[in-house]
Amino acid sequence: MEQHDVNMCLAIKAAVTESIENMVFMAIDTDLDGLSEDLGSDAVMASLRVLEPRPGVLRLAMPRSTAVEISKNLYSIAENELTDAMIQDVTCELLNTISGRVMKRILPAECTFHLGLPEMVDKPHDLQGAFVQCSFLADGNLLIVLAQI
């Protein structure tokens, strides 16, 4: 792995840990210990464009079950009270928060950055090879962050 990719993975790991642990109090583990990284057929994925200082893309992909667990914890409600719109909004807001923290870690303090608006995307399995990919477990639930910056 090149140094750029190593630095990106470290930034993503810190950003995911800070965001998930502060927002939903779920412990983040980077050791998947042989667990499958298959997102399943009902996976959800959000995408966010980095506009400045250089163009790029950040994505958050996870099985729907992970998105449900995170949403339940965030809203403190039961699964049957969750709507698809809530799950999608949680996924987008989580990616938005993670993306800001990644950019802050990889850019010098004097460098401003501009992010686009997060949006849900289809084809969660379309994980192109040019992305740096980092996988995590949040209380045992798989989530994957991809970066192309």
Partner: peptide
Amino acid sequence: VSSASNPAS
């Protein structure tokens, strides 16, 4: 309250 804040901005 923003995800895009940094010292410069």
